[in-house]
């Protein structure tokens, strides 16, 4: 898309296996959607999820302070986490 307004004029073309295409068409049908609308929505949702997963996490001011305070303390796992770590260590004595 150029500097013009978004007019849904852009195209995305790609090759895929016939079997995959039929499977996608079937899914779109089940939801009563046009194939193009279905692929657009699903792809966009997945793209947003992936981007969110790779974005930096932003903490609030309070959380930031608490986190910094915790850096001054030694690692302090609770009883359950200590048990979990011990089990994992026991699962792999070779390392």
């Amino acid at each position: 898309m150029g500097a013009v307004m978004a007019t849904s004029a852009d195209r995305l073309e790609f090759r895929l296996e016939l079997q995959d295409k039929e499977e996608i068409e079937h899914a779109a049908q089940l939801l009563g959607k046009k194939l193009s609308a279905f692929v657009r929505e699903v792809t966009l949702a997945e793209a947003r999820r992936v981007v969110a997963e790779h974005q930096a996490t932003r903490l609030s001011a309070d959380e930031s302070r608490r986190l910094l305070d915790s850096f001054d303390q030694p690692f302090a796992p609770n009883a359950r986490l200590r048990r979990a770590i011990k089990r994992a260590t026991d699962a792999d004595p070779g390392r």
Binding site: H54, A56, T57, R58, L59, S60, A61, S64, R65, L67, L68, F71, D72
Partner: peptide, 26 residues
């Protein structure tokens, strides 16, 4: 697992306590 970064918000420079990097690696 993957690597990530945490951005700290609303901190005065003095509060960063000499963190070597900003954002914090995670």
């Amino acid at each position: 697992a993957s690597t990530a970064e945490i951005e700290l918000a609303g901190l005065q420079p003095a509060d960063r306590r000499g963190l070597p990097r900003y954002p914090v690696p995670a």
